[in-house]
């Protein structure tokens, strides 16, 4: 236990050291540039951030942005998993969906954002963009996962006449989990970024992206940096939380969590 704590403290110190290193570089750059509009100092950004968190609209923006990303990811997961499983099974379905997914993947995000602005309300446009970015990742991973399922295990189940639900539960599900986990973690990072980008252009009433846009309009560089820091922090936080949840799921799915005799 003691060893563990020391290792943890060491880790913490190392990270703080790295943080201080980059803050110093930032500060150094600031003293060279000497223009607050181009590059505010770390201290100014921190002050601006402290101002922001005291305002109600900060929390409203954060909550609504997270709500939108949450919907975007959730809908992508549902659609990606369902269609991925179907395409993994049926070649016809795969052949129909594959070109569509490739097209979506190669379309510039900005085209989609502009289309979304025309089609949807400013509130829903970021959700739509998030789905367009995340669905292909999840779909592709699920299809790959289904195709990578060990045929030898499936043969074994066939010989022993194991029922469909048990085959799904004990062979398909555990084989798919790693692909699923990787897809969701990647989607979250990407979905978060494109949602904020979409918000900048669609400016819904409460959104981080709208706040970024206002910072630009009012030439509030401190605000721009502060909001960017918020996006980074939230992205890391959400990823950590998600990774933790998925880890638990993985352990349960694969049974590795159980103690050995």
């Amino acid at each position: 236990m003691k060893v563990f704590t020391t290792a943890n403290t060491k880790f913490l110190f190392k990270n703080i050291g790295i943080l201080i290193f980059y803050l110093l570089i930032w500060q150094f750059a600031y003293t060279i540039v000497q223009k607050d509009l181009y590059l505010p100092s770390p201290w100014q950004v921190l002050q601006r951030l402290a101002e922001l968190v005291r305002e109600l609209h900060f929390w409203q923006a954060v909550a609504f942005s997270m709500y939108r990303v949450g919907w975007g990811i959730a809908l992508s997961v549902v659609a990606g998993v369902v269609l991925g499983v179907i395409a993994g099974w049926s070649n016809l379905c795969y052949n129909l969906l594959q070109p569509l997914v490739t097209a979506i993947k190669s379309t510039p995000v900005i085209s989609f954002i502009i289309i979304a602005l025309i089609w949807f309300s400013s509130f829903n446009a970021p959700v739509f963009i998030c789905i367009l970015m995340c669905f292909p990742i999840i779909w592709t991973n699920i299809v790959t996962g289904i195709r990578q399922v060990d045929q030898k295990l499936l043969e074994m189940a066939q010989v022993y006449r194991v029922k469909r639900p048990a085959v799904w539960h004990r062979i398909y599900l555990p084989s798919l989990l790693p692909y699923f986990t990787a897809a969701v973690v990647t989607s979250l990072g990407l979905g978060w970024k494109v949602s904020v980008a979409a918000e900048v252009l669609s400016h819904p009433q409460h959104a981080i992206g709208s706040q970024l846009n206002s910072s630009k309009v009012y030439m509030d560089a401190g605000g721009l940096f502060a909001w960017t820091l918020v996006v980074i922090f939230l992205s890391l936080l959400l990823e950590k939380i998600l990774a933790h949840c998925l880890n638990k799921l993985n352990k349960r799915g694969s049974g590795y969590a159980k103690d050995q005799d």
Binding site: K152, L153, R161, A166, P174, G255, Y256
Partner: peptide, 18 residues
Amino acid sequence: RLLPWATVKENIMFVLDH
């Protein structure tokens, strides 16, 4: 051809399912 994510006992019980 054992399920890598199942214990020895679970592997045997898998085929006894029905």
